[in-house]
Design a binder for these strands. Structure first.
Lengths: 127, 127
DNA sequence: AAGACGAATCGAGAATATACAATATGATGA
DNA sequence: TCATCATATTGTATATTCTCGATTCGTCTT
């Protein structure tokens, strides 16, 4: 039975050579770690935002709600593709929808997403 | 030659039935569209942020810069995995690094990133 | 009730992303 | 110089995501 050394073991060795009191540093690094839930929640939002088409949808919704067929025009993509993107945005809690007759209208769920879009744009410019 | 109807054609038909002046609405939807470059740039940032491990790295860098082996401890993952995540964060322009001897130290490139992390957290809570 | 319509869902192939062992690189020190 | 160390890169298997035709689901109209 070959025993693969547990991933961070060599790293802990390295820290031992880098600091006088590696234990304290390690403890500090491990304590400030956010919860799995928090991180997963944030990641889910960023994943939903990490797609050109979905960003275009949100941008279109900045001014007003849109029905599905309007967003098809915005994306210039097949209906099923657009619908799938909209579902992902809904699942991520970024948009809401209402039905009116055979039309579905989509709108931004939380205007804070505009903050995310604008900040990402700013970060991009700085780089 | 079967001519697949260009994706948004049926959608434009639908808009024709929904609005008195569909042309105007279509023009408006298409004009307010952000540039490919802008969208791709934003998406690249969100893609880099759409991963649990990379969010943990950024969170660890909130307080101070860290060397690679410290981030191995934070993530509890093999060295090559951590290094790959760090490269992605660098490519996205979210972190910078400096070399000191055999150590590489990583730091946040733009504190606006914290705004993104915090906003995503807030959006998550609202949902 | 029947057909048309907008939208949602399904399914499969393609494209991306991820994890990580193995290996390479480059710095340090004996 | 040679061994060791921290990190970077590469190769590859696996997993996730994306796209989009086909189908299904409600709703409206006649």
């Amino acid at each position: 039975m070959s025993e693969t050394d547990s991933p961070p073991d060599d790293a802990q060795d390295a820290l031992g050579r880098l600091y006088d009191d590696p234990e304290a540093r390690i403890a500090s690094l491990q304590n400030d770690r956010p919860s799995d839930q928090d991180v997963a929640g944030q990641a889910a939002i960023f994943k939903a935002l990490g797609n050109d088409d979905r960003l275009r949808v949100l941008e279109a919704l900045r001014d007003s709600e849109c029905c599905g067929c309007e967003l098809q025009v915005v994306l210039d993509a097949p209906q099923s593709t657009v619908s799938t993107h909209l579902r992902k945005l809904k699942e991520a809690g970024l948009v809401k929808s209402r039905k009116k007759g055979k039309w579905s209208y989509y709108r931004i769920a939380d205007t804070a997403v505009f903050g995310l879009l604008d900040l990402a744009h700013a970060v991009q410019d700085d780089a």
